[in-house]
Design a protein around this nucleic acid. Structure first.
Lengths: 129, 129
DNA sequence: CTTGACCTTCCCATTGTGGGAATCCCCATC
DNA sequence: GATGGGGATTCCCACAATGGGAAGGTCAAG
């Protein structure tokens, strides 16, 4: 099938499908006219990528997971390790963001938020330390 | 002072100081030899930027905050609005990441993590929906 | 045979940061 | 005065993932 149909059926944009191909994640056949030709197996790969990306797995992780996915002799421990490392990264970033949000919220709570110029938010950003 | 000293004293790399200049956030004098010349006021600006970036304010927000910072007649409400919008963005992203982490953790909890190939994580990513 | 929808590749932009090259400048030492 | 080291300048490239868009080839229906 065409890239357009593959995009529709996989939920991945044609643009990104081509990109994933340059990254070696999917390898469609080529027709005589140069058009890419996707099989059902390629669709499954594209959907796999979409799900993994929806969980914010970096493409590098997706590559490893795809390799494990296709490996009949894989050990589930390998998949688990990648997933848990990703979980740790996600939680670490999420916590950092929430910490920033919390301190900003705290500052904003002490900011009048009216027409007066006094503002602890700017005071904090201004500190020389 | 030189860009090197400004970098040391502000905690912002020389590379980034130049970048912020291209973005119009800081405007040092130029000496006859073409070297940038930073005043104490420039240092304060650089530190302000560093603090704002540490709170993950996008440069576009930093630009607005700097303008308000320098405006003696600013209304604190303006600062507050920018900060709270940023807080909302941070919390939204943090929640999305934690949701992803949670669902992955859930999947990983049901993955043996041994030498067997069965793995609910891959099963999930494989789904056609 | 034209038209419109689709495909191809290639370049550019994003955001914020860093690496590195080529070139120039300043100061100190021999 | 020459040389050397450390710093300055600008410019290009890279990252990760995604999208926009141009210039051109292809196919199918009218």
């Amino acid at each position: 099938m065409n890239i357009g149909e593959a995009a529709r059926r996989s939920g991945v944009s044609a643009k990104m499908i081509r990109h994933y191909e340059t990254q070696g994640l999917v390898r469609p056949q080529r027709l005589a006219n140069g058009y890419r030709d996707y099989a059902e197996a390629d669709l499954a790969v594209l959907r796999f990528i979409r799900h993994a990306r929806a969980l914010a797995f970096p493409l590098e992780d997706v590559r490893k997971l795809l390799a494990l996915w296709g490996d009949r002799n894989r050990a589930s421990a390998d998949v688990r390790r990648i997933a848990l490392a990703h979980v740790a990264a996600l939680e670490s970033k999420a916590q950092a963001m929430q910490a920033m949000a919390a301190s900003l919220r705290h500052l904003a709570a002490h900011c009048h938020g009216d027409a007066r110029p006094d503002c602890p938010i700017l005071d904090e950003l201004e500190k020389s330390s």
